[in-house]
Design a protein around this nucleic acid. Structure first.
Lengths: 165, 165
DNA sequence: CTCGAACCTCACGTGAACGTAAAGGTAAGA
DNA sequence: TCTTACCTTTACGTTCACGTGAGGTTCGAG
């Protein structure tokens, strides 16, 4: 395992080799390089010799990407759009902090809000459809359970079930 | 457009050519054949000459597959597992109808319930994760909106906001 | 019976998302 | 300095999910 730079104390942000990042994120090294290649991840730091060095921030972003991919099942292109909106938002936030003119602040804030709304909208659409699907499955299950109860002879004194579809 | 067989009355279940099915489902003919090829759809009826004829039931199943794919973003293999559970359930239901022995009926019913529970479980897991994601986005948006209100000078007499993260 | 539109089966092509060497440079402990 | 495990790029291979002809057959109206 590689060394720890100059200081022995861990509080300073550690930089990770690609192998460690792969371990922690569950991706392969190839995948990490690939994501960088297609512009989904922006290039991490490098050592003098060319080794990639990932910051905690980088890992955060990678983790988010993995989540989005798993959750939404989007293509990397779609993920890219979502994440770029995200990056834009962060950039805007910084811009916002450095900005003092209130009109400009309002401006950047507005754009930031719109990007989040964009993401939220995508997620919500998907969510609605999934909720509908679950309702269907729930209803189906309830019907089956009803029949089962019917078969079991109705322990609790219920009306003699004659409700068929 | 092809003919209507013997009877002119529509109440009898119409069978559709692949082009019509493609239209109604939004899939291409190639995709329909491909799904059949990989065992995701079981082969539809054929005319004497070999033309595929799809029943309303077939269309139902295709529609479900399209939904699952869009919604969950699963691979066709995963979809296949889910749908096969579904088919099993239907088969069990028929079996159930023909069965008279109550013990056997209970048995098949139990298995049917389990398959639906299996599907429901998959959907629910996904749903939970998506809800969590939405919460995160909601919170983020709320924070941004808060800052915006702060910037706008607080129309409604609120406390002088000094809550900074 | 004829004809054009629609269907059939190969079978090769394609884009996305990586996998997998090959050939060579680098890091850091001994 | 040597060693060896880890990294680099380059580049071809692979799987999934179809697209796209080619070449031939079938349908059904006229």
């Amino acid at each position: 395992m590689p060394h720890q730079a100059t200081s022995p104390t861990p509080p300073e942000p550690r930089l990770l080799y690609i192998s460690e990042v792969a371990q922690r994120t569950g991706l392969t090294q190839r995948t990490l390089r690939y994501y960088e290649e297609i512009g989904l991840l922006d290039p991490p730091q490098r050592m003098e010799g060319g080794f990639r060095l990932y910051s905690e921030d980088d890992i955060q972003r990678i983790t988010r990407i993995v989540e989005l991919k798993r959750l939404l099942g989007f293509s990397l292109l779609e993920i890219k759009e979502l994440v770029q909106a995200e990056e834009l938002r962060e950039q805007l936030r910084d811009e916002f902090k450095r900005e003092s003119d209130p009109t400009a602040r309002r401006e950047t804030l507005e754009r930031a809000i719109q990007t989040v709304e964009f993401q939220l909208d995508k997620v919500n659409r998907r969510l609605d459809q999934m909720l509908a699907l679950r309702s269907k499955l729930d209803a189906r299950l309830a019907r089956l359970r009803g029949r089962m109860a019917e078969l079991d002879g109705i322990e609790e004194p219920q009306m003699n079930a004659d409700e068929r579809r």
